[in-house]
Amino acid sequence: MKFALLVNEGPFTHQASDSAYLFAKAAIEKGHEVPRVFFYYDGVNNANKLSEPQADDRNLVKLWGALAKDHEVDLVVCVAAGMRRGIKDDILAEGFRISGLGQLIEAGLGTDRLVMFGD
């Protein structure tokens, strides 16, 4: 089965990004596909390569990047939400790309389930 995920919060205020990541990982382990994760609202902060968590904290920006690389997950940052928050190409972490909201609707159409994580 194909799952698309929508992540609406950043990695340092809410648990939503971690829940989404662990859901994606579990889905892939079960043999499902996660062709796209769409980052909206403060979720765009998941793509900030300037983020430097403390050494004893997980680095979700890098974890997403690794998931994308190993399992062909398309990590899409909403252009409008990103621009408002200063998430542009020059600070975009590896594995992410910036595109329009249409990519969210397309993911809703092209997968079996859209699962939303937010606050």
């Binding site: 796209r36 062909e72 398309d74 397309e106 993911a107 159409l109 092209g110």
Partner: peptide
Amino acid sequence: MAFEFDTEGVKKTFT
């Protein structure tokens, strides 16, 4: 990498 979705003719109800 941009995943290509086949959405031709797909009609869904969004809430």
